[in-house]
């Protein structure tokens, strides 16, 4: 499965993030008999977030398989199928429910190749609708990227745009190892240009979404958009913010982040998962250990989720994760050397 290199002249259309994912899955199903989709209510229902949509009509219920509400069993079946030659894409209805399947994801899928000394391969994609902002409260709104990012053997992705949602899913599908893709639920309706045809977005490569001189914001998923909004506001004040879209939590693109911090000397990590022991800690530590350390001219800041479950009340829910004004305020303080 060699990825065709991206042709810049390729045609693009406006698609939503969810449509881009569906398009990727449809292309994969059409291209390779070994690809199957598994998940709860992904068939005629079209998926809880209508991501699989009409795929069952096009490919039938054997290829687009509704599983019982058995996350552990379902995930394990996907592991066994991947181990023996299928290329399953397993949808968790909410990433929160993956906690029921941690055994299979962490003990089995992630470790199989290693435990078997490289003699086995588990090419498997877990799709995880994640994040807060939908009023679904504590058990349907979490951001577990860092949890899974802590497991060697997994790859963990967080696309922020429709183009990457398709490109990273296809890259995950081509990858010989298990890949966990976190899809932010608030992004499903986001529209953007999506190239036609089969293309892959490289795993482990961050994207510089906005260049700037004064400070670097590394953000992921929806936080990329909030950081860009904050950067636009700060630009009016003459503060020039560089925004990096992490895209891949594991592996992390050290190079792009280090190069940016070397340039700006200031870093803010913005992520939706709980602030403590999260992505920001990893990036901060990575910078502290890197050659960018000598270029740091201020403490590194982390903006992450509060140390609490996601609350129901809409104002509390907003307050529980970084919002654009929070990012703006933190960046302003850092740029003004008040930190």
């Amino acid at each position: 499965m060699n990825a065709p290199t991206r042709n810049p002249e390729i045609q693009t259309r406006e698609l939503s993030y969810a449509e881009a994912i569906r398009e990727a899955m449809g292309m994969a199903l059409a291209r390779d008999e070994r690809v199957i989709l598994m998940g709860e209510d992904i068939g005629v229902y079209g998926g809880a977030f209508q991501v699989t949509g009409d795929l069952v009509e096009r490919f039938g219920p054997d290829r687009v398989r509704d599983t019982p509400i058995s996350e552990l069993g379902g995930a394990g079946v996907a592991v066994g199928a991947a181990l023996t030659g299928l290329r399953p894409i397993f949808e968790f209805q909410f990433s929160d429910f993956a906690t029921l399947a941690m055994e299979q994801i962490v003990n089995q899928a992630a470790k199989m190749r290693y435990m078997l000394g490289g003699e086995a391969s588990v090419p498997l994609v877990f799709r995880m609708p994640a994040g807060s902002g939908t009023g679904a409260a504590a058990q349907h709104s979490q951001s577990f990227e860092a949890w899974f990012g802590h497991v060697p053997g997994l790859k963990v992705l967080q696309p922020s745009t429709p183009e990457d949602a398709k490109g990273l899913l296809l890259a995950a599908l081509e990858d010989p190892d298990p890949v966990v893709v976190f899809e932010h639920k608030l992004l499903y309706k986001l529209k953007g240009h999506v190239p036609d045809g089969w293309y892959t977005t490289p795993i482990g490569k961050a994207a510089v979404r906005r260049e700037g001189r004064d400070l670097t914001i590394v953000a992921s998923a929806i936080m990329v958009h909030r950081a860009l909004a904050a950067a636009e506001k700060l630009a009016e004040e003459g503060i020039d913010v560089e925004v990096i879209d992490l895209r891949s939590v594991r592996p992390i693109d050290h190079e792009t982040i280090i190069a940016s911090v070397r340039k700006t000397g200031r870093l803010i990590c913005v992520y939706e998962g709980v602030r403590t022991l999260g992505i920001g800690a990893e990036i901060s530590a990575m910078i502290a250990e890197s050659e960018a350390f000598d270029y740091l001219d201020a403490p590194i800041l982390r903006l992450g989720g509060v140390e609490a479950p996601i609350p129901y009340n809409p104002e509390l829910e907003k307050a529980a994760v970084p919002q654009a004004p929070d990012i703006e305020a933190a960046a302003r303080k850092l740029a003004r050397k008040e930190v």
């Binding site: 070994r34 394990g76 199928a81």
Partner: peptide, 25 residues
């Protein structure tokens, strides 16, 4: 032999997955 398993019950869903492959293909 898809492997011994250190987790009690860990291999059971995997066996089912292997059977799914057989049926699917």
């Amino acid at each position: 032999n898809l492997g011994a398993n250190g987790i009690v019950g860990g291999g059971i869903p995997i066996a089912v997955g292997a059977a799914l492959t057989a049926k699917q293909l």
